[in-house]
Structure formats: structure tokens, C-alpha cells
Design a protein around this nucleic acid. Structure first.
Lengths: 189, 189, 189, 189
DNA sequence: GATGAATGAGATTTCATTCAT
DNA sequence: TATGAATGAAATCTCATTCAT
């Protein structure tokens, strides 16, 4: 039941937004009553926090799976992280959109917790760039911090428009963006 | 008064979100009454629409100023558009954040109007890329559509984190991102 | 201007009701401003009172025109009064409907004034019946009071449904109702 | 509770009118809170619709009870319907007055529904008159439609003035009006 | 585990009226 | 005569949450 409530909530939060979704909406969708909701969740915000926590924890875990693979070059790591984000937003659309859009409705304390994890994710990208620079895979003197934000922008922005069932697959989109980030779009003279 | 209400609303919407900001909050900040608000705005949503409309209209106008300059190469146009976005988000932070975050609270009809203009802005970027490819400034066979989304991601994402008063100026950030987009971060072998 | 305001108000009060019609609605219809309204009327209620007072005063005056005509039998007087009411409701539809429906929105004091005049109108009918009984035009021992209410019911109810432009003219309707009231619908054995 | 809210509302609507009665007034009278009201009714209008629907449904049911009785002549049916209306208005005064006065505050859609039922009630009277004409109980060539409106006027108007506790009982009033309608008030020469 | 009646605080909106100009 | 900005009181409605069962 808790699981069903969470799933249904994600769908509703995505469609109508956290604030526009009432507990009543959620329990109606499952044909149970409000009491049931409060049996499983301490508050509406707690549910939102659960969703956020699950999402970022899972993402971080998978990022570490990439980072910890010693056979990969930094370039490969970066590509795999881009791929991770694109596919995740494509596959878990609703969760991803709730994650990016509704963080504001968490309590200050919870926002802090989530932002820390989000920042950790970004810092890990920054480190890949720094390491790549040092190892000669990437240019020297890159602003790894600014670039990590830029790369996250490229990928995360896709939650605003990207639809899996379009003509471009996640794999293709990954290649398009990785090419742009690694080699640019300008022709060499 | 209408102007003051709009300005104050933007600040509050940015800080607390559209939904979390009550009309009471707005009028309290200016020491007037709710009646005054409704003398100037038909509804809370109408105010939000005004904000959105002003923002995107201004942005589009400035984009066309760049596009219509015949002395510029496509590469230069692209750089100027990136610069336009970065500086705009830096300078008009609150408006920009309201624009990106609160569009959801518009009516379906108004969302449509705004999205059309937003899409026009993106299509204009796409055309620059296509033209650049044709003229030999950029690679051939680029997915100009996907790249236009990616470039917007890089710049627009900055509303989430970028602060003007940090160590990196808008001009510098523009250069960092233009370099990445045009020539990539990977070292050529 | 005062006259135009009154006329327009009657039309709006009929269509939307007194309460549902705002001063704004009224002045909008004449392209003036609220200040203008309050220059001519002390309050919204005062306007309604004016409308009521004009209506019932006019009706009473015309009733006395009938009553004071010494050439008429009581039967003829009754018929003329029925005719007066039917035609008035037909001709002055909006005023009539406002008069019957919106009295509630007058102040207690004003209600009293209007009700007194309305009752005078009814009492005058009652007197015609009593006089007719005494003179042998009508049956003896009629409950003239109850009948006066009944006759007013027949005629006044028409404001609820009667439309002049239908197939039955006010003159025809008067005859139908006068026949019913005077001779009944049952066949004599 | 729902029932108590409805009952109390009818009393308040009668006394002050639908518009002049706030939800606050209603719940204050029962010492509950506004939330309670909205737990039971979707809106203030829904409550009004419930009242209307119940009233006219009950009235129609009782009318059919009369119409379907094959032992009755048309004259008797007409008398019983008059009796039904008079007693109903006398007994259920508040409901009746709300029914006649406040229909305007229903939504267009709901007005339509109620008016259809009201019209059915009237058409049933019209049919009795037509049938009575055919069977020789009533005159030929009566305008049964206009007369049905007139008869309803006689009875329904009583909600405006009739008080049970006066000197005339519902049974007596029924006789007075039935006599007028069937045989008229004029003396036969 | 689950129900559902009840709460209470707050949100948006309406509008008659005032008043300085 | 007329304007229009501003007020303030009240109205409808929403909803997260509680709690006895």
C-alpha cells in the first residue's frame, strides 16, 4: 500500500504539481481514504522527501558504480554519467520531473539534505573533469566547476522537453551531447 | 502602484514561489490592501501572466536584435545569444527564476501562449546552427534541434545556481560555455 | 444621466438579479465611472427603492383611475384591473419582474413602505368584490380578502412566464382570466 | 448532520434569502465549522439544488398519485391538485418559499433540470383540463395552457402571503379557490 | 490497518462605498 | 458633474491534519 501510494503520488505530483495535488486526490486514485495515507506517512511533506531521497540516492549509487570502475578513462566516465542522466530522465520521467520541480516544497532542513547530495553528484563530475585535465585527456586550465554545472544543464534540462518515444533514442541523444561537450560543434580550420 | 505591485510580486514569487505567496503577502509588503491589488489585476494568475509575457517578449526582442545584424557570423550570433541568456539570468535573476519555475501556474491557454514564444526563441537558435552548418562554420549533419535544447540547457540551468557576485563574471561564464559548445573540452590528439 | 442609470439598472437587475449586478456592471454599460453613480444615488439600495416606488406609484395611480370612474360596474372595474396588471407586466416586463423579485433587497423600512402600497392595491380589489357582492353583481358571502389574493396570483404569476410576443395577446389573456374568475371553467348542468 | 445542515439552511434561506445567507450563518446555527459544511456539500449551490430537487420530486410524486387514481373525475383531480399545492405551501412553508424564490441562484444547467420538472407539473394540470373539456366536465374550447398557468398562479401566489395559523384553514382556502376556478364569482343572471 | 467525520487556518476574490481632485 | 484610486469587510472554498472507532 505504501508503495502504491508513493507511485500514485509521483504520477499526480508530476501531472499537477505537489501543491495542486491534495491528499484526497491521491487516496481517491487508489480508492482508499485519507486515514490510510496518514497511517503510512507522517505528513505530505514526508512523502515528498521519501521520493526525493530515493531518487537521488539511487542516482548517486549508480554514479559511484561508474566512478569506481578503474578500467574507464575520464572521457568514458563522463560519457557514462551523461548517459546515466539522459536515460534516467527518459525512463523515470515522472520521478525525475518531481525531483527537479518540487524540491521547493520540502522543509528547509530536508532541502539542505537533498541539496547536499545533489551537490555531491555535481562535484563528482567536477572531479572527473579535473582528473581528465591532469591526465591529458581534457584541456588544461578548464573551469571544471563551471563546466560541471554546464554539463548538468545540458542533461537535466532534458526533463523539460525530452520524450523517449520521439525519434531520438536516449543512446543517440547521449552521443549528440557527448560529442558537443567533448569536441564542440565548430569545424576546425 | 501597478508597477510596484509587479516588482514586489516578482521578488516574493522568487523567494517563496507563486503558490506560497499570498496576495496578502504582496500587499503587506507595500502597505496597501487586497482591494488595491484587485484594482490593478484581474487575478493572481493575470499578474503572473504579465510577468511571463514581459519577460519573454523582451528576451525575444533582444534575440532578434542579434539575429538581424548582418555583419555577424553564425558563430558570433550563437555566442551573443549565449551571452544574452547568461547576462539576463544574472541581471534579472528574480524575473528569470520566476519565468522558468512558475510557468506551471498559468492557465492552459496562457501556458500555450508563453510556450510558443519560448519555442520560437529555441527555433531561432536551431536556425543559427543550421545556417552555420550550411556555411561551413559548424560541422555538417548536426542535430540542430537537439543541440538547440542542449545549449539552452547549459545557459538556462544557470538560473539554478549562478550568482553574479561570485568570482566568475557573466562575460567569463559566457566564454567558458561558448568554448565548450564550439570546441569541446577534449584535447585533440 | 440619472434616468439612463435607472433604466440600465432595471435591465441588469432583471437579467442578473439585484445582488448579482454590481455598480461596476451598471456604469460599464453606460461607459461612465462609479463616481458618477454615487453622484446621483446615495446607495445601491436607494436606486432599488426608486425603482420600486415609481413602479407601484404608477400602478396605484392607474388603479384609482379605474376605481374613480363612476360609469363602470364592479365587474367592469375588476376586468379593467386585471387588464391593467396583465398589460403592465407584458409591457413593462423588466420593471415588473424587478418589482416582484427584488423587493427583498430593500431595507426593512423601505420594504414596509412598498408593502403598504402593494396592500393598498390589493385592498382596492377586495373592495370591488365586496361592493359587487352587495350590489348583486357577484355572489353573496364571498371571501373577498382571499379572492383578492387569488386574483392577484392569477395575474402576477404571469411575470414568471408570460411573453408578449407569443401567440396570446394581453387582451386575449385578460379575457381568458376574466372569464375564469367570473364564470368559472365548469359546465353548468 | 447533512440533514441538519439542510434543514437549517432552508430556514435561513427563507428568512434572509440564499444570497444573504452565508455558509458561516449556517454552520454557526449548528455550532459546527465551515469545514463540516464542505464535507457534506460540494458547494453552496449544490445544497440549494438538493433542496429544489427534493421539493419538486416529492410534489410530482404526489401529483401522480392523484392523476393515476382512476376513480376520480377531472374536476375532482383538479380540486385535489389545488388542495395539494395549498396544503403543501401551508405545511412546508419554508421549503416552498425557498423553492419559488431562490431558483435563480442555481446554475443554468440545474435551473434547466428543475424547470423541466416544474413544467411537467403544469402540463399535467393542462392535461386534466383538456380531458375535462373532452369529457364534458368543463367548457369546450378552453385555453388549457393559459388556464394551467392561471391556476398555478392562484395557488402558488399563496406562498407570498398565506399563513396557516390565520383564520382560514388550507381546506377552506382550497374550497374558496376551487369554487372560483370552477364556477366563478359572478352571479348568473 | 483502515475509516471518515470534523476542524481550523488561510486562500482568492468581490464589491459597495469613500474621497481627493 | 465626474473621475478613479483605494479601502475593508465579508464571502466561498480548500485542504492538511487529527482522532475516535
Amino acid at each position: 500500500m505504501k508503495n502504491e501510494l508513493t507511485k500514485q503520488s509521483i504520477l499526480l505530483f508530476e501531472k499537477k504539481g505537489f501543491n495542486q495535488t491534495s491528499i484526497q486526490d491521491i487516496v481517491n486514485a487508489l480508492d482508499v481514504t485519507k486515514g490510510t495515507f496518514y497511517y503510512y506517512f507522517a505528513s505530505k511533506e514526508q512523502l515528498l522527501m521519501d521520493i526525493h531521497h530515493d531518487y537521488i540516492t539511487n542516482l548517486l549509487k549508480r554514479q559511484y558504480g561508474i566512478l569506481d570502475d578503474e578500467h574507464l578513462t575520464q572521457k568514458e566516465k563522463l560519457m557514462k554519467i551523461i548517459h546515466l542522466l539522459i536515460t534516467d530522465i527518459a525512463d523515470q520521467g515522472p520521478s525525475a520531473r518531481v525531483f527537479f520541480r518540487e524540491i521547493r516544497y520540502l522543509s528547509d532542513e530536508n532541502i539542505e539534505t537533498i541539496k547536499q547530495k545533489r551537490n555531491q553528484f555535481r562535484l563528482n563530475i567536477q572531479k572527473v573533469i579535473e582528473e581528465g585535465s591532469k591526465l591529458g585527456e581534457f584541456h588544461n586550465e578548464l573551469r571544471a566547476d563551471m563546466l560541471s554545472f554546464g554539463i548538468l544543464g545540458v542533461t537535466n534540462w532534458s526533463y523539460n522537453w525530452y520524450k523517449t518515444n520521439g525519434e531520438v533514442s536516449p543512446d543517440e541523444l547521449t552521443k549528440i551531447y557527448a560529442d558537443m561537450i567533448l569536441t564542440g560543434i565548430a569545424k576546425r580550420r
